[in-house]
Write a protein that binds this DNA or RNA. Sequence first.
DNA 1: GTAGTAATGTTATATTATAACTTGTAATAT
DNA 2: ATATTACAAGTTATAATATAACATTACTAC
Lengths: 169, 169
Amino acid sequence: MASKNREMPDPAFRPHDHSRCRRKVLAAASRHARDQGLRLTPVRRRVLEILLENHRAMGAYEVLERLAREGWGAQPPIAYRALDFLARHGFVHKVRRLNAYVACTRSTHSDPPLLLICRACGRVGEAEGAGISREIGAIAGARGFSVERLGVEALGLCPACAADGGAGA
Amino acid sequence: MASKNREMPDPAFRPHDHSRCRRKVLAAASRHARDQGLRLTPVRRRVLEILLENHRAMGAYEVLERLAREGWGAQPPIAYRALDFLARHGFVHKVRRLNAYVACTRSTHSDPPLLLICRACGRVGEAEGAGISREIGAIAGARGFSVERLGVEALGLCPACAADGGAGA
DNA sequence: GTAGTAATGTTATATTATAACTTGTAATAT
DNA sequence: ATATTACAAGTTATAATATAACATTACTAC
Ligand SMILES: [Zn+2]
Ligand SMILES: [Zn+2]
Ligand SMILES: [Zn+2]
Ligand SMILES: [Zn+2]
């Protein structure tokens, strides 16, 4: 577990074979969808692919523009519905600080992630938030509050941008 | 510290003398502003007062409507600027999940709070997030990511609404 | 194949937020 | 006291984000 963190660090912030990274995530998503009886339709899959082109978050209208150029519907609901579906089922995360969406790169689409947002290069990484979730649940529980959904977003500098002095990537 | 949690539970979710609650927070804010050389001007103070009327979050336009009715400017920047000022200095918190703002009721306006958002009654409580912040900082740090700003928001049911079966307050 | 259901396409509009510029106000310097 | 400056408030306009409501198409079950 602790060792897993060392062996599989978040790819977002380090050079890696991203074609492979992307294919793996996409394959896992397909599998997950099939197993869960979720309909990963062409638009939905295409939106996921678009988000997987890099580790940045994209706004709904940015996604929409891409879809429109590729011949899909050009109206907001097209993008929002696909993104909502993907987010509901954990294929993507909504980054509330950015009003944008990022593809989930973790193996499990279950518990809420800790999102790491680089303010310089815009890349978004994610860390397992299981331990944090438990702790937050406990703090809330001590106040009689039952947590149903949790969002944890950290804004800061990724390793590469920190090395640059925070000026940007 | 743990005892403080028992003695000073978040007021948002329990019956309390809210006039007193509000006055205390407002007085503390005035003091803080004076000490820090911050200009808590009439509009800014009024916005804080409005948010302090209850423990719910208000949207910028909701606040603006109130200001307008009271003779202040009726344009969005009036509200947004006051809210931005108050948020920058920790007098209020932006609740990103709701695109809304809630008055800070804690004694210190420094570290980031854990926001507890009741989906039934809309009230927003806050818990000290210092421990969580440290832990998140550590997890991020292990990935070379340096956290500058942190947002933690939990959506769920407050004690009162949980007793109601989650139907609403 | 028909009926029912879910997804997509389209139109219109609601909601949230900011840019850019003007006017007023209060502290500072001369 | 008056000029200078900096910051805040007011105004106009528009940008960016998101959803409601309804028409059409595609898939599923029978
Ligand atoms: Zn990758
Ligand atoms: Zn970066
Ligand atoms: Zn109160
Ligand atoms: Zn409640």
